[in-house]
Amino acid sequence: MPDPTPYPVRLADEITRQLGQLADHLAHLPPHQATQVIARVMDSQDGVLGGVTRLVTTSSMFTKGQAERGALPPEVWLALGRAANELDAIGGDLDEHHDQLHQVSTRTGVGTAKPPEPAPLVVRRRR
């Protein structure tokens, strides 16, 4: 008997499962490989972040139509719209660091004469 769950729902479940696997792997990777994964995930155009942003934006557009018809409360559309805007802003913030992530991810760590200097962590927030 075929699975009655629609394919897009199964696809969403599978993507969620794979993201969990990726997070588990990331925690155990050597630094240069972890940085490669992070650089790809955080790419706001072609990475996971970009894909999630597009998905939330598409969801917002869909729910807008549903809210206009009265099928969903407008708050659902507004919440998804805010989430899409925030994800886009986060992607923009991370784009500033894409080159550094890419540079670090291409290093193998072998043969470096001098290890990098640790940097003090400073929390700064701008919006």
Rank of each mutant, 00 (worst) to 15 (best):
A34H: 00
D43G: 04
T108V: 11
H98V: 03
D43C: 05
T53L: 00
A12Q: 09
T106M: 08
E14N: 13
I90P: 09
H32R: 03
I90M: 10
D13K: 04
V48A: 11
V123W: 08
A119K: 14
I15C: 09
A23I: 09
A79E: 10
M1H: 06
T5R: 14
G47V: 08
A27L: 10
V110I: 13
V56H: 02
V52Y: 04
P116T: 02
L87D: 00
M1G: 14
V52M: 08
D46N: 15
T58R: 12
N85L: 15
D88L: 06
P4C: 05
T53E: 03
I15P: 06
R82L: 14
R124W: 13
P115Q: 00
E86S: 12
I38S: 06
V56R: 01
A39P: 00
P74H: 05
D93H: 12
L87R: 00
G20N: 01
D88P: 04
P2H: 05
P120K: 04
A71W: 09
E14S: 13
G65V: 09
L87K: 00
A23M: 12
G51H: 00
T108E: 12
K64V: 10
G47N: 12
A119N: 12
Y7N: 01
Q100P: 01
V37I: 07
V41K: 08
I90Q: 02
R124V: 15
L19H: 04
L22H: 01
V9F: 02
L121Q: 03
G70R: 09
L72W: 06
V9S: 02
T112K: 14
